Amino acid sequence: MNRVIHPIEQESFRRLRARLDTSALAPLSRAVVERVIHSAADLDYAADLVLAEPDLVRAHAALHAGAPVVVDVEMVAAGITRRDTVCRLRDAVAGPGLTRSAHAVRLAHEQVGPGAVWVIGCAPTALEELLTLDADPALVIGLPVGFVGAAESKAALRASGLPAVSNVSEKGGSAVAAAALNALLYHPISTEEKP
């Protein structure tokens, strides 16, 4: 089913591209960068995001083949418009040395197993916990926000070698994390990716 793009969104992307030339980026990288910038009206994401086209190509194929999508909070899930998600935060409890977000990641991992796409836009502790698990993700969109642990958890994600979308700074959040995933969901399937 083709996505109908509202004229306001079309104009927003036109203005974005008038202010920032993204034409040199590979197709999926461009889609993610532009949609994240669009979601936050923040051109600085162009230099702040860290991503690799081969990771995005594999994740795009996995998503369109039905890989589960796990989110850290319902706010991320609310922003994902074309896919059901798994969020176990309501079932999680905090304990000694364990936040609710970290426990929710454990519960979700038990539910979905390997090959999922993980979208973390709120809790650095969720991202930290994911890195301790043998999740074998198709992709980790790690864009938690905050002054405590956000930049550090994203640096740990990059150091892990997992396929990932992250950013260097402390900024991030549910809207930008959802936007990064939506970019992959909205992008058409190329003939090379079809089974």
Rank of each mutant, 00 (worst) to 15 (best):
G121D: 13
P7I: 11
V4F: 12
R3N: 11
H6C: 05
A177T: 13
V145N: 08
A40G: 08
H6I: 05
A41S: 14
V119W: 00
P27V: 06
V50L: 07
L162K: 01
S160C: 05
R88I: 08
L107I: 13
A155F: 04
L16Q: 13
D84M: 06
V36Y: 09
V145A: 12
E193F: 04
A31D: 10
A155Q: 06
V168S: 04
A178P: 09
V145F: 09
L162G: 03
K171M: 07
S29E: 12
A180C: 13
H60P: 14
E170F: 07
L28I: 05
S166T: 11
R158C: 10
D136K: 14
R83C: 00
L162T: 03
I37N: 09
V119F: 00
L139S: 00
G161S: 10
E129C: 09
K194F: 14
I8Y: 06
H60A: 05
A180I: 02
D72Y: 02
G66A: 05
V117G: 05
S39N: 00
A92W: 11
P195D: 08
D55M: 01
D84Y: 09
V50T: 15
R19S: 13
G79H: 03
M1V: 11
A151D: 10
P54M: 14
A40I: 01
E53V: 01
L130C: 00
R90I: 06
G115C: 10
G95I: 14
L49D: 03
